[in-house]
Amino acid sequence: MKFLVCISNVPDTTTKISFTDGKALNSTGVQFIINPYDEMALTRALEIKEAAGGTVTVINVGAANTEPTLRKALAIGADDAIRVNTEPTDAYLVAHQIAEVAKKNNYDVILTGRESIDYNSGQVATMLAEMLNLPCITVATKLEIASNEATLEREIDGGKEVLTSSLPFVASAQKGMAEPRIPNMRGIMAARTKPLQVLEATGDEKLTSSVAYELPPAKQAVKLISKDNVADLVNLLHTEAKVI
């Protein structure tokens, strides 16, 4: 079984976000990590590989500064890594670059996270499946593979959906897929010598451009109204908050 797991390099969840000139993330002092949903996908791929055999390749579209994140994926247990050398400026560009790599290597399973926690647009999995003309299961919480058929679960409104897919397919992982692992020292040492291949990008076509970023307005001070004063509360909700 050949797995390809897409790894996005994102700021740590505790980062205090700020922007330089409202145009780009200020990355001074920011720690970058494997996108948590991608890490769940990677862990599930490793679990299946360890039980049934196969290889797990991780891929990232990004500049050289994302390599530590790929090394971490290798330390966790991926066999090899590919970095497509270009800035991941839009989802189409990322999906296109990954599709070009996937076309040349017959992967049985291509996994992504349900979204990256930095830009949260959650488009790469579906675009990728479309470009490769493969089945696509998004936001999956469970994945089993037996005799060339995959069984996946998704949470849907008020319940859960169980579905099957032929191989190859693309799926995006949601919480529940697997419990991420802490790399051990043996893994970190092995990662030093595992292959990390750098490929040049195929074209630079993209469909969207970010124009500006803004932080949400700072939290306002709270106004406390005594519980005997319902009239004032109603008045304020009407005139100030304008919600009733």
């Binding site: 505790t14 002092g29 530590p68 971490k72 330390a75 802490i182 790399p183 020292m185 970190i188 030093r192």
Partner: peptide, 30 residues
């Protein structure tokens, strides 16, 4: 826990140093 790094000392560490540290940190948290 979030580690204070007022003088950006992390820039003096190698990527492997940081991975080793973060591994130990993640294990301690867990």
């Amino acid at each position: 826990y979030q580690h204070p790094d007022y003088y950006l000392m992390d820039e003096l560490l190698t990527d492997e140093h940081k991975m080793i540290r973060d591994t130990a940190r993640a294990w301690v948290k867990k």
